[in-house]
Nucleic acid binder design. Structure first.
Lengths: 205, 205
DNA sequence: CGTGATCCTGACCAATTGGTCAAACTCTCC
DNA sequence: GGAGAGTTTGACCAATTGGTCAGGATCACG
């Protein structure tokens, strides 16, 4: 890939076309399931031209993951010590659910990666992601200690929020097969259900 | 594959070796990520010998999925109208969580399949699975109507149970990366958390 | 023990796939 | 408008992969 520092107009356009195409293909087929030909076709470029911008399939994948990781974790970062704890967490759930609706490809990209053992991002999970989760977990523990939310394991609370929200993107095929809903209708129902679930479980007795 | 009706001792042994090897490989790499060589090696057979028992890679995958589907859905089938509703559902959650611990490969096999759009089992999802879920959803609705559990959308309740429990198998790499726990310790914490989550959310006010 | 069915293998094949390269084309900027 | 950097491509390659096949080994059974 040409230097990021000074990008041509053409580079700008093609690199973002490639990343978008790669997101489409990788998220639908996983790393090994995706082929350079598919990505090239989706980006309307020839295969050698792809490899002019990225030196390998791996390089495209790596670039995609690191480009999207920040976006993906942004909602958790905004979990803040100001505000009413239960509201704060329910708001986080709603933001994550919105992301599952708006960015299902991104969700599935990470799902594919992690289901297969996170071979390309395990160091990020153990490092920066763990650090972020640790930080938010102790915030939640503080809230518990102050009696402002019910006593729950903060790590498993976070896991359950990830699981329940991302489910609607990652397992979309199953959800649609069972509900056969009109477009996106079920997200509203999911929002209502999850609000109830977390509000009742977190409100201190 | 030779007739199921009358199986040789050798067939019995090799077919189950193949299916076990295939479970290992497919669950870790997805359908396209898996290769016949890997499966053959894991089963200690030659590749042509694999293809003596199953006529294609697809055939192995199909056989695996249909063999495991019943096991996988058994816990939902046992959700029964007898007994206290909240206990009944919490018991279902615990059984699903046990399965994530005991049968993570099976969970990941289905996860891989569904994340990638369920190409091989969409008809099963729309058919028998939907029928089963519909049936249990109306049981839950009945409980709601009788005031024996809180008012919740039964479909999204079931989705959330699948999501939260299977998460520990499917996203194991992430869970381990963040918790770094001693072997399986975190399943006990998860059980406690999920019990609290569903008990409080489902107990009628 | 022999014979037919079952089981197994090495050699092979065609298609796909990630990747290379030299040559040609096109843009930018003086 | 021309020189040099930047961009694109067709032809090609080696490795991998799913699958075939003819023949040989082994087993069950009368």
């Amino acid at each position: 890939m040409p230097e990021a520092a000074a990008r041509t107009r053409i580079q700008e356009k093609n690199i973002s076309a490639i990343l978008d195409a790669a997101l489409e293909v990788f998220s639908g087929a996983g790393f090994r399931g995706a082929t350079l030909d598919q990505i090239a076709r989706a980006a309307s470029l020839s295969k050698p031209n792809l490899l002019y911008y990225f030196k390998s399939k791996e390089a495209i994948h790596r670039a995609l993951l690191s480009e999207l990781l920040d976006t993906w974790l942004a909602p958790l970062r905004t979990l803040d010590s100001g505000g009413e704890p239960v509201d704060e967490i329910v708001r986080y759930v709603m933001r994550k659910l919105d992301m599952a609706r708006e960015l299902p490809r991104e969700s599935r990209l990470f799902a594919n990666e992690i289901v297969q053992g996170a071979p390309h991002i395990f160091d990020i999970i153990e490092g920066p992601l763990k650090a972020l989760v640790d930080e938010k977990a102790s915030l939640i523990r503080k809230w518990t200690a102050e009696g402002r939310i019910a006593e729950v394991d903060p790590y498993h609370l976070i896991f359950s929020i990830w699981a329940t929200t991302q489910h609607y993107a990652d397992f979309d095929a199953q959800v649609r097969g069972i509900l056969r809903p009109e477009r996106d209708r079920h997200f509203d129902d999911a929002a209502r259900f999850l609000t109830h679930l977390y509000r009742t479980a977190l409100t201190p007795d």
